[in-house]
Design a protein around this nucleic acid. Sequence first.
DNA 1: GTGACATATAAGTCTGACTTTTTGTTCCCG
DNA 2: CGGGAACAAAAAGTCAGACTTATATGTCAC
Lengths: 233, 233
Amino acid sequence: MTTGGRGLHGHVLETLGPAITAGDYPPGSVLRTDELAQRFEVSRSVMREAVRVLESMYLVESRRRVGVTVRPKAEWNVYDPQVIRWRLAGADRPHQLRSLTVLRSAIEPVAAGLAARHATAEQCAELTECALGMVATSRGHQLEGYLVHDVAFHRVILKASGNEMFARLGDVVAEVLSGRTHHDVMFEDPDPAAVTLHVQLAEAVREGDAERAERLTREITAGALQELDVLAP
Amino acid sequence: MTTGGRGLHGHVLETLGPAITAGDYPPGSVLRTDELAQRFEVSRSVMREAVRVLESMYLVESRRRVGVTVRPKAEWNVYDPQVIRWRLAGADRPHQLRSLTVLRSAIEPVAAGLAARHATAEQCAELTECALGMVATSRGHQLEGYLVHDVAFHRVILKASGNEMFARLGDVVAEVLSGRTHHDVMFEDPDPAAVTLHVQLAEAVREGDAERAERLTREITAGALQELDVLAP
DNA sequence: GTGACATATAAGTCTGACTTTTTGTTCCCG
DNA sequence: CGGGAACAAAAAGTCAGACTTATATGTCAC
C-alpha cells in the first residue's frame, strides 16, 4: 500500500492523476507544462517528470507546439496499480469495482486450477492456515481480521499458480476485497457459504484436484459478482 | 505498434528498459543517475525523466544517498505494454509468451461469453466479417492476411465484452498472435479446425449464445496452449 | 558495544538560456 | 479564388550549473 507521494513530483501526481482519471479534463483537453508548473508551484523540471509518468500510463500525450493532451479513456493503462487506485478513489468507483470483479472471476478459477497442480507443500500449508484464520474470524464482527486472511488466501492462490501475470493481480484483489469491507458498508458477518468454499478450496489444492479447485473458485467469484449486483444494480 | 522512441528520453528507455527486463542488472543492482547520463550522453534532466518512467513501471526504485536500485522481478508491472514488448523482444521470450497465452486462456472465454450478451449489431457484423476474412486467407500461404483478420477478430470480442480491463488486452493478444506468425516460424497454413471454431464463435455471439461462445473460445485458447507445448516443451 | 554526532554522497530542486519541431498564418502566384 | 511556399510564433525539449536535502556510514566518546 505504497502511497508513492515521495518527492515533489509525486505530490503533483497525487493531485493530477486522480483529476484526470476522474474525467475533470475531458479527452482532448490541452494542458501546458508551464501553466501546470505555476499552478502547482513547482519548477518546470519537476512538472516535466510528472508529465512523463502520466505519459507512461497512457493518460496523456505530450506533443511539441501543442501541449499535453489528455488521451481518451480507452487508451489508459487500466492495469497500472496507481491508475487503479486513483479510479477506485474517484467517482466511478462502482464501475471500476465491477470491472475488477469480472476480471477476478475470469482469472482466479484458472489460477486456482494451476495452483492445484503447482503449489508447493509450504504454499498448501499457508493456504490451510489462511482458511483456518477465515473460519476463526467469520463470526462476531471481526471483519478486519477476516479481511486480512481473505486477502492472504487469494494472494497465495494467485502466486501458487506459477504465472507471473496472475501473481501480479494480488494487489488488485486486495484492493477489491478491502474496498468491499471498508467502503461498501458491511455490517454483517461474511457469508458462511463463502467461508466453507474457501476451506474446501484449500483442501482441493492440497489434494491436487485442479478441476475441483477451479469449480470451487468459480463459485466464490460468482458469489462476489452476485454480491455486487445486490449492492449496485 | 508505437515504438515510443520519441525524444531523447525515449531513446534511453529503449536501451535501458530491455536491459533491465532482460536481467542484465540483477535485482538490487545500483545505478547512478549521473553515471547513466554520461553513459548515454544525455543531460541529467533527460536521464531523470527516464528513471521516473522506469520507476512508474516498478522496474527500479530511486532513493536518496543510495541511487537507482533495480527491483526484484516479482514487483515489475508486467501489464505495462512497454514492459511486455521489452520482454517479448528479450531472452525469456518463450516464458513470457507462455504467461501471456495462459492469461488469454483465462480471459478470452469469459470475454466471449460477455460479448454474446452485450455485442451490438455492428460488432456482430464486424466479427462475421473478420471470420470470413480468416476463411478466405486460411489457405495458400497468406499468413500475413490471416494474422490481420485473426487479430481484429479477437480485438472485437474483447471490446464487445463491455469490460474495459478485457478490452485493454487487445494489444497483448495482438502481440502474441503476431509473435506466433513472425517469430516462431509458421510455414504451414493455420489449423482448419481453428478457423472453423472462429466462424462458429462469431455465430454464437451473433445468436447471443453466451455458453456456447465461452465453450468455443475455451477450445480456441486450449489449441493455442497446445501449440505452445509443441513448440516449447 | 551503544549511542550521539559529523561527514560524504547521490538524489532532488530550481533557474535561465537555448534549440527544435510543429502549427497556423500570410502572401504571392497560377 | 485556390494552392503552395515562406515565415513567425508557440510550446515542448534539451542542457548546464548551482544549490538543497535526506540518509547511509563512519567516528568518537562513553
